[in-house]
Design a protein around this nucleic acid. Structure first.
Lengths: 191, 191
DNA sequence: ACCTGAACACCGTTCAAGT
DNA sequence: ACCTGAACACCGTTCAAGT
């Protein structure tokens, strides 16, 4: 709790860092601008120089979250070439992120798309990775034909839903393989 | 805004009703016990007789939400017999609910499972419908074999994810058919 | 440019007191 | 049993004033 002063210009970064900590440790309900200011050793009005209001802070947290997912997606995909392996890698990354940052995930999806341009752009960057995985898979003949962006949305939806259920505790993480399997092979029996 | 008095025992129901309205019209950020009390024409301390604290109100809203989903699930399934038709019906119902009540959905999945026994029970009741749909589908040879509860979770995950993306505006509702199709037939090309 | 500190209008929660 | 109203410790936001 012994924080140094922040009179040297990195208050914005310090606020974001502390906000993420609070989100991870205590949830969105405990996120207060005044508490963050206190923790960071600054007056309660100071953060408003860097974040117009609380929503602007939440938006910045969402952007950081999507950017982190994009980076982890990219790293996970780089290690594999086969579509199935890549899909599994994406799923693992997303599920881990959701499990470790359930409150941040809620912040990321809690805002209506288009409300903030920076968030929208970060979402598109993150979703671009699954899209290219689909495209590559189609070129290898391992994925059905169709608009890769739309197929990518179906993939994201399945991952997002699984992550949500696991983060809420309604499902266990060991459902990952099964869900990915059902998505890859379908629910209908092969003739 | 001219509300009658609520000295006759239905304050609990009146608070719940008004809370759902606010959730639908203004989102979770505008949900305040004091505002509800004002709208309902009662002193700000009165709701605490029926809801220990704000979380208890959110839990009650979640229970009501899951119960409504269960009823709509049951009605949707009753009209169809083939697995594909039933799956589509479930998806339509869930997506409509999510689109019309995005803030309520966030409340319903915002709480850790097991934190409130009544919410947990309501979740199980709602998820029971997809489970029986899977069981029936397996008996008809229209669904791959496997633990119906686990397959049901994969289905719920896909619906939940799609609903989430649509509610946030990241995807459009016309992805429904495609997502259900990918789940039914799989992403891998049929040989 | 960046931060402080007072001010304002809100919260949730508690609790004695009323009916 | 059910509700009122004051009290307390918090919020987010704004804004003159300081450095």
């Amino acid at each position: 709790m012994s924080h140094p002063r922040y009179h040297h210009g990195d208050l914005r970064a310090a606020v974001l860092r502390r906000a993420e900590e609070i989100l991870r440790e205590s949830g969105a309900g405990s996120l207060s601008l005044r508490q963050i200011a206190r923790d960071v050793g600054v007056s309660h009005g100071a953060p408003s120089r860097h974040f117009r209001d609380k929503q602007a802070l939440l938006d910045a947290l969402a952007v950081a979250g999507f950017d982190r997912i994009e980076a982890e997606f990219a790293a996970a995909v780089a290690g594999e070439t086969a579509f199935d392996a890549r899909l599994h890698a994406l799923a693992r990354v997303y599920l881990r992120f959701a499990t470790e940052n359930p409150a941040l995930l809620a912040v990321m999806y809690g805002r209506k798309h288009g409300a903030d341009a920076e968030v929208g752009a970060a979402v598109l960057r993150a979703f671009e990775v699954p899209r290219t995985v689909i495209v590559d898979g189609q070129e290898r003949g391992e994925v059905v034909p169709g608009d890769p962006r739309r197929i990518g949305m179906a993939v994201i939806a399945a991952l997002q839903g699984l992550a949500n259920l696991v983060a809420s505790g309604f499902a266990a993480g060991d459902l990952l393989d099964e869900t990915v399997g059902h998505l890859t092979h379908g629910l209908r029996p092969r003739p």
